[in-house]
């Protein structure tokens, strides 16, 4: 995608030292003739060095479009139409990914920022062995021999705890289980030692016992390698397990970002509070004798990104909404120094 904003690299002081990525008012729209889907319409979020930011939201919240925007992997007619994506390179320089040239972006993908997906087969080529794919990735970014690359590839498979790595190097993706393929995809993503890993629902298609293995692996790799992770998920249980910080998305915006304990202990956006109340919890929702209480669903449904409300997008479903909420979109407010919310009435929560 061709963006022509100048000064792409001139933000040396725009990021605090401990921040790896900061999205500021990111807007990614899908323009189809006269209709515009504002899939991402004002996303502000921060990923700190060595930490995991979970981006959580329901279908259509814009969480996946946000991660594809950061990777600049949007497909037509998706386009970043506004905002900045400030990223700190490993050499300390700060770039705006939103306006970087395609050529420079290619050098960043894989080496600085890597991505894994829900379905490993979207990134693995069924026609090549696992070893060849990891070696190709390494040799794309580093001038080393095939022999050296194979040794590195083998080490990557060991890193992600794949048994019998020598045998696995020569296998094709279809010869592996879903959990094993997800490990291979992680190995492929980490092959060039990226500073930031974007993981889009990486455990959603896996059984719970396999999901636990992969989450455990990601936590260990983060501890050992020190990489930062942006973890996209719809599952608040997974968020509680993996995240240091959480950004909650609704209708194309981050409506709340906070450290994980703060978010769960005291959500400061009515949507987050509503989501948590929706998840069945036998301890809360069943009496001593086993009688069930009804759940508290959020009334109504998510607005269409083709026709977002004028004010707060959550106002039509919000128990706290008043006239002001319906006309003026909330700013990102500080509920506490580390706790941001897009709710005019957060003090009531």
């Amino acid at each position: 995608m061709a963006m022509s904003t100048p000064n792409a690299d001139n933000h040396p002081d725009a990021l605090a030292d401990d921040i790896v990525l900061r999205a500021e008012d990111l807007r990614t729209h899908f323009i189809m003739g006269t209709r515009t889907a504002k899939s991402v319409d004002g996303v502000t979020l921060t990923v700190r060095r060595g930490q995991t930011l979970a981006v959580v939201g329901e279908s259509g919240s814009g969480k996946s479009v946000t991660s594809l925007s950061i990777m600049r992997l949007l497909s037509h007619p998706g386009r970043i139409v506004g905002g900045r994506l400030l990223y700190r390179m490993r050499d300390g320089g700060v770039v705006d990914l939103a306006t970087l040239s395609d050529k420079r972006m290619r050098a960043i993908r894989g080496k600085e920022i890597a991505m894994i997906f829900q379905e490993p087969m979207t990134s693995l080529n069924p026609l090549y062995t696992v070893g060849d794919q990891i070696m190709e990735m390494i040799r794309l970014h580093e001038p080393i021999s095939r022999h050296e690359a194979r040794i590195r590839a083998r080490r990557m498979l060991e890193l992600v705890e794949i048994p019998a790595p020598d045998k696995r190097l020569d296998q094709y993706p279809h010869e592996m289980s879903g959990g094993m393929r997800q490990r291979v995809m992680i190995a492929l993503a980490l092959a060039c030692n990226p500073a930031l890993l974007i993981a889009d629902e990486p455990t959603t298609a896996l059984d719970v016992t396999i999901q636990a293995q992969i989450l455990d692996l990601m936590r260990r790799l983060q501890r050992e390698i020190g990489m930062s992770i942006l973890f996209v998920t719809h599952n608040l249980g997974v968020v509680a397990e993996i995240a240091h910080e959480v950004a909650v998305m609704y209708a194309g915006r981050v409506v709340e970002q906070a450290p994980v304990h703060d978010l769960f202990a005291r959500p400061r956006h009515p949507y987050t509070k509503g989501l948590l109340a929706c998840i069945p919890d036998a301890k809360r929702d069943r009496a001593e004798d086993g009688t069930r209480k009804m759940l508290n669903p959020i009334p109504g449904s998510v607005p269409s990104v083709l026709a977002l409300p004028a004010g707060c997008a959550y106002a039509p479903r919000c128990p706290l909404a008043e006239a002001h909420c319906e006309s003026v979109p909330p700013d990102l407010l500080n509920a506490s120094p580390e706790h941001l919310t897009r709710c005019w009435r957060h003090e009531l929560l």
């Binding site: 719970v208 016992t209 999901q211 249980g237 509680a240 397990e241 769960f264 998840i279």
Partner: peptide, 17 residues
């Protein structure tokens, strides 16, 4: 033990198969 629970304070016995 492996089913994720939406509570970061829950520290369960980790039985990872």
């Amino acid at each position: 033990a492996t089913a994720p629970v939406p509570d970061p304070n829950v520290r369960r016995e980790r039985v990872i198969l």
